[in-house]
């Protein structure tokens, strides 16, 4: 019920300062959206997977993402292919469908772009704990309560999904045999469960002083986020890569 994207671990991505990681993820998302170079898009996808594997993020977590992402991405690609009638080098035509070398290239770019954007976001989500999110954002000047709210918002999708699975299982454990029916009728119970859980977490935070009046004393953070030498190196490398890609975009490569 309280699921999240974050996967426990202690690899280099897990240890990396969340601010640097956030810059890497945002840069990848923006550049992938701006530049449709297929080699660049493929390279980003490979680089993200290599980074996650070196971090020792479990293959199970990576596979789980692909399990949901791949059908969605393929569906978008197929619809795009069917709808795109552009391009000079026609490879196949018939039944109102026209496939050209250019349209195939466009579809490949769309496919890779979606995958890149999702994986760039997950690079941050899979390897950054709630505490590091909050501390990282606080160090960027985001108020604590806004950072906490953000950390809870990004958990909403996996938490809702987990709550729905739990509701379904509880109903089945009480005799419901139809899985489809359970999904349809489960939304109400899931929504109530989520609402209840949110209220409980809110109360739990308050009874441990989340809105305490500290006067001028600032809030402190147990998950200590600070820039180590390796974080500075990563930051410089990220900036260099961003600059290089911008140069390539400007020169039209």
């Amino acid at each position: 019920m309280d699921a999240e994207f974050y996967v426990h671990g202690n690899g280099w991505l897990h240890r990396l300062d969340p601010r640097v990681k956030l810059l890497m993820a945002l840069a990848a998302i923006v550049l992938c959206c701006v530049w449709g170079n297929i080699i660049f898009l493929a390279a980003v996808l490979v680089a993200i997977h290599v980074a996650l594997l070196v971090d020792a993020t479990p293959m199970r977590a990576i596979g789980r993402v692909w399990k949901y992402l791949l059908p969605f991405d393929l569906l978008v690609a197929i619809i795009w292919l069917l709808a795109d009638h552009s391009g000079q080098d026609v490879l196949w035509q018939g039944a109102g469908i026209r496939i050209s070398a250019q349209s195939l290239m466009t579809v490949a770019v769309v496919f890779l772009r979606i995958a890149d954007v999702v994986w760039a976001a997950l690079l941050m989500l899979l390897t950054t704990s709630q505490a590091k999110w909050i501390n990282g954002l606080a160090r960027l000047g985001v108020p604590f309560h806004a950072a906490t709210k953000w950390a809870r918002i990004i958990r909403w999708v996996p938490a809702f999904s987990a709550a729905n699975v739990l509701t379904l299982r509880e109903k089945q454990a009480r005799g419901l045999s139809s899985r489809f029916g359970a999904y349809i009728h489960g939304w109400h119970a899931t929504r109530k469960r989520m609402q209840w859980r949110d209220e409980q977490v809110d109360i739990a935070m308050r009874i441990r002083g989340s809105h305490m009046n500290r006067g001028t004393t600032p809030r402190t953070y147990y998950a200590n986020v600070h820039m180590r030498m390796i974080d500075w190196v990563d930051l410089v490398l990220t900036i260099v890569v961003i600059a290089a890609v911008i140069v390539m975009i400007v020169f039209g490569w």
Partner: peptide, 14 residues
């Protein structure tokens, strides 16, 4: 982190 949460809210040094 769960145990430290209330201390963070009090602004206790690390």
């Amino acid at each position: 982190q769960e145990i430290a949460y209330a201390l963070e809210n009090r602004g206790m040094p690390l």
